[in-house]
């Protein structure tokens, strides 16, 4: 880790000023401190925003506004989240460990970086994300955890967050502040595919910071929702694939379907094609299979992750089948 200065943001304005002059935002530090220590990232100044007001507020329309500095643990334990957006609570609780969830913030979780082992090996491996143009050792190397959707020749890394998969499914909106004012971006559009510039991972501009996340008023498919994470260990491991699903039925047909996938792309993957294919169909296994196959039609497996296509399909079908059978 290079020598650095640490300052605690007095307020949002102070944080913004420091970020716009080059400081890195420090939330819980559960990813950034590790990246700095391993020299994957460098910073000359850290501005700690974890003690800025962190609240979860219910809005008049029934939605929630979650400050960026709210911890993963606090969000997962919140009664309204558990009742109205169970998929989010489940996704949070599937992530990391209790200790890390006590530290990690919502903002930091969104901005966490890939766990690709070549990305982490600063001395010994090539990585276009770390060093644009260097090459990618993962493409022909260990890529069991890597992307099957939306990857590029330059980068096949996945985004490791569980929370973001649920947020993408829930139509969450990320609130940003910068020198030129505030703006908001749907979470599903916040992360960008790698393309030719894998070092660019989100639409966050230099000098901008995440101030919070807004959840829309819960729909039926948000309330009847679940998150299933498939991994090598039964706990405390990153996802091979994960599925956030929500389903609402009317008169024996699907009225509303929500699906997002984790572990398959550089971003939480909202499966809109599959969702569209499900509207109006009878909630049965063959319809679920057909819908997710449509979503996976563009999947491009690598040498070590071809199993993910079938695994996503089966996990999605299992999640939707369970939701269809669940008593609302």
């Amino acid at each position: 880790m290079t020598p650095l200065r640490y300052v605690r943001a007095a307020d949002k304005v102070d944080a913004l000023a420091r970020v716009s002059s080059g400081a890195r935002c420090l939330g819980g530090g559960t990813n950034l401190v590790d990246l700095l220590r391993q020299n994957v990232e460098q910073a000359s100044e850290l501005v700690d925003i974890s003690r800025l007001h962190g609240a979860i507020q219910e809005r008049d329309d029934g939605g929630l506004f979650i400050d960026a500095s709210v911890t993963n643990a606090a969000l997962a334990a919140h009664p309204l989240v558990r009742r109205r957006y169970p998929v989010l609570a489940r996704a949070l609780l599937a992530g990391a460990s209790a200790q890390i969830r006590n530290m990690a913030t919502v903002g930091g979780n969104i901005l966490q970086r890939t766990r690709c082992t070549y990305f982490y090996d600063v001395d010994g491996a090539r990585c276009n994300k770390r060093q644009p143009g260097a090459g990618c050792d993962a493409r022909e190397g260990f890529n069991r955890y890597h992307a099957i959707l939306g990857a590029s020749d330059q980068c096949v890394a996945t985004h490791p967050s569980d929370m973001c998969v649920a947020l993408a499914m829930l139509d969450a909106v990320v609130h940003l502040s910068g020198a030129s004012g505030d703006r908001s971006v749907p979470l599903a559009d916040f992360h960008v595919p790698p393309g030719a510039t894998p070092q660019v991972e989100t639409v966050l501009l230099p000098g901008e910071l995440i101030t919070g996340v807004e959840l829309p008023p819960p729909t039926d498919a948000m309330v009847r929702s679940d998150y299933r994470k498939v991994r090598d260990r039964s706990s405390y491991a990153f996802a091979l694939v994960s599925v956030a699903g929500g389903l609402a039925l009317a008169e024996g047909r699907v009225r509303e379907a929500r699906i997002a996938l984790g572990g398959v792309a550089a971003k939480p993957w909202r499966a809109r094609r599959a969702e569209a294919a499900l509207i109006g169909v009878a909630p049965q296994s063959d319809a679920f299979v057909a819908a997710i196959r449509e979503e996976l039609a563009d999947a491009r497996p690598l040498s070590g992750n071809g199993f993910k296509i079938g695994l996503v399909e089966r996990t999605v079908v299992a999640v939707l089948t369970a939701l269809a059978g669940a008593r609302a």
Partner: peptide, 11 residues
């Protein structure tokens, strides 16, 4: 409970 390895002392 937190991980002291990922917590900077100044935090």
């Amino acid at each position: 409970r937190v991980l002291s390895c990922l917590t900077l002392a100044v935090q």
